[in-house]
């Protein structure tokens, strides 16, 4: 009887991925996970402040990079060649914003927004927000667009205008 070792032909089952591919994916996953966490933590360094918290809450100070939340005041939006100016309000406080880019998305009057930038002082000593990016923050209420709802929307817009 021949007991010598048989010659082994290395074959992988058809259609099965090689383990090295799984190891490569796993390495990419670990890198991607690290990037996601790092980006989140870096982003979290910018405090998230409501307009009425500027200069009041720790971290929402003048001169530091923050994200500020408020509602765009009715009739306050002015667009120039390089900048867009508007006023945002929250809980009775307001802040003029000078945005160095053109707002996109659903940006409009009476809509909640988050602006990234810093609070600075103008030559006359008044505070304003030098914004780099504005992001529209829509709420979780959806309403069908129809005549009845348009009347309600117009009423809400009028109320926003009166508050401003």
């Amino acid at each position: 009887m021949d007991l010598s070792p048989r010659e082994v032909v290395a074959t992988a089952p058809r259609g099965r991925k090689k383990p090295w591919f799984a190891y490569a994916v796993l390495a990419l996953v670990l890198i991607a996970g690290g990037v996601v966490v790092a980006k989140f933590l870096t982003s979290a360094l910018d405090y998230y402040c409501n307009v009425d918290e500027v200069g009041v809450k720790d971290g929402c100070d003048e001169g530091r990079n923050i994200r500020i939340q408020g509602t765009v005041e009715q009739g306050s939006v002015e667009t120039n060649d390089a900048t867009t100016n508007f006023i945002i309000t929250f809980n009775g406080a307001s802040m003029p914003v000078e945005l160095g880019s053109e707002p996109t998305g659903l940006f409009q009057e009476c809509i909640p927004v988050v602006v990234t930038g810093k609070v600075l002082r103008a030559d006359d000593g008044t505070r304003y927000f030098a914004g780099e990016e504005v992001i529209v923050k829509h709420d979780n209420q959806y309403d069908a667009e129809n005549e009845e709802r348009l009347d309600e929307a117009n009423a809400e817009a009028a109320a926003c205008s009166r508050k401003g």
């Binding site: 980006k39 982003s43 996109t104």
Partner: peptide, 11 residues
């Protein structure tokens, strides 16, 4: 996000 917020992604 792009059509409503104005950005594809934010952290």
């Amino acid at each position: 996000g792009k059509v409503t917020w104005g950005t594809y992604w934010t952290w």
